[in-house]
Design a protein around this nucleic acid. Structure first.
Lengths: 107, 107
DNA sequence: ACAATATATTGACAACTTTCGATATGTATT
DNA sequence: AATACATATCGAAAGTTGTCAATATATTGT
């Protein structure tokens, strides 16, 4: 059974700030919380921590401690798998577009 | 109207009932509202109408009147395009589907 | 042990969502 | 035009979410 739930995955992505965090992690690789907070003049540190918690719980980011910092990084594999699931669930099979190497026939 | 917004797309998909509606439309093709309501013992007619409105506003379904009924259908093209956008936005370019051992990080 | 730094958690509040009953609007039939 | 049917909209209750200030926890250096 797929470990991921399409609904909660979409929920996790259904927020401006969380998408921005993910995209930043994709670009910059690992980042500490402070660095992320600094990049979002708009949001407080607790708010960022809250979003990171949601992203982590959904498996979209990983974290590891490095000294005082905790470094977060995009979990590319899981994001990919979730996107593939979405695709498989809703896109009618006949569409043969662009690059597909995406989905293993296994729904 | 092909300028889709990843966040509102995910928001629209971030609901159990809406995903179920979409999936049913994918399977069964066009359906009237009553038919959909009938399939969801759980939800009232106004609730289904509300969800359909959101899906339509997001371009994920189309609707047309046929006599007394209004028939809804999956807008496969847009769903596909949105999924592709998501993929492009968050999946690192060269990740090769390595069947990650699904470690859904829990707190 | 103490102070400084980095992150997480708590508690509270406003804003938004989901849901439903009641009602309105539109369409066909008699 | 009156009635029946199909769907949309309104208004309110209940639940969920995003946000922040304050506080707690963890780590490092003095």
């Amino acid at each position: 059974m797929s470990a991921f739930d399409c609904v909660s995955f979409c929920r996790a992505l259904g927020d401006e700030t969380r998408q921005a965090i993910l995209q930043m992690l994709q670009k910059k690789g690992e980042m500490g919380v402070n660095a992320i907070v600094a990049a979002f003049e708009r949001s407080s540190q607790p708010t960022i921590s809250h979003h990171l918690k949601i992203l982590k719980h959904e498996g979209l980011v990983t974290s590891r401690r490095d000294g005082k910092e905790i470094l977060y990084a995009l979990n590319g594999g899981n994001v990919e798998e979730c996107c593939g699931m979405l695709w498989a669930k809703f896109v009618p099979a006949k569409s043969v577009t662009t690059r597909t190497r995406t989905s293993k026939a296994r729904a």
